[in-house]
Amino acid sequence: MSDIKLNFEHHHSAHCENGVISNLFKFNGLDISEPMAFGIGSGLFFIHIPFIKVNGIPGTSYRIWPGQIFQRASKRLGVKMYADTFRNPKKGKEALDAVLAKGIPVGLVVSVFYLPYLPEVFRFHFNAHNLVVYGKEGNEYLISDPVMEHVTRIHEDDLMRARYAKGTPEPMGKMYYPTEMPKEIDWKKAIVEGIYKTGYDMSHIPIPFFGSKAIRYLASKLKDYPEKVGDRKAALYLGNIIRMQEEIGTGGAGFRFVYAAFLHESAKKLNSNWLQDKSIELTKTGDLWRDFAFKAGRVCKNRSADKTSYKDLSEILIECSHQEEKLFFELHSKIRTI
């Protein structure tokens, strides 16, 4: 295969999935920012399911599961996507090369563990990372990884390992790219639908594992960690909450700032002072989340058996939960009237 280098513009982003959506759509002529992609794709969420353990630590997430932002954003914007997996690695590679040869940049789902360009301390077995391949030179693919400041490259063998990582979920060589872009975009409709869904997810799901209820649920579990699992594990559990909250450059507020940026941009697009007020409110909640992470970090570091510190942290979470419940309840009930 001869060398290919597509004229792909790389934008450094806070998060991989939004970043890939934004970068791929921009290449195809649809100018959309990262927060816009995140908001229209209803990316913001909160999940805490203590009995689903990841490496022995209760699962917590500040956003919707991988792949959903993409699906929702393209549906609401009217973008038609091609997406496929390949059980046979050889076929997966051929398919990728064939599409590149046609001059199409391709989105891939990969495991972070096998990306040599990332510093070792960030390489865990996380199998739902997204990046764009925009060319090939010799036996190296040219990569636009949204969380990297600049474009990079990767040896074809390493990319194959990353695409065919095992575990949950298995990427199975998944690749995707837009096939048809909309002629006109009804931004208002897309934004309203995105906000309506997030409003529902955060304030109306009648199960304690999801939405703002789950933040309270986590708070109730958190305050008993030292007694229930011991100091060492309690610190690991708490560290995991911080890491999920930070999850690659979300500003320490678990995507709350990205969503506030989305509300801010939407307010301008739709000329709505109300949305701007909501953006300011969410920024304040984001700052509270940061406060939580900061204090939690100190608790982790001290490893103190101090029960009160966990109780204090739990109270901050309860406050976060109330603020978000109120905010998203209001967004859900009023967004369709603007």
């Binding site: 400041e149 940026a261 970090g297």
Partner: peptide, 20 residues
């Protein structure tokens, strides 16, 4: 107004990562 700014690390995240 919302804008982007680069950060090269934050204490709580560093602590959590060091701990892992």
């Amino acid at each position: 107004n919302y804008t982007k700014e680069i950060s090269n690390g934050w204490e709580p995240e560093n602590i959590a990562l060091e701990q892992v």
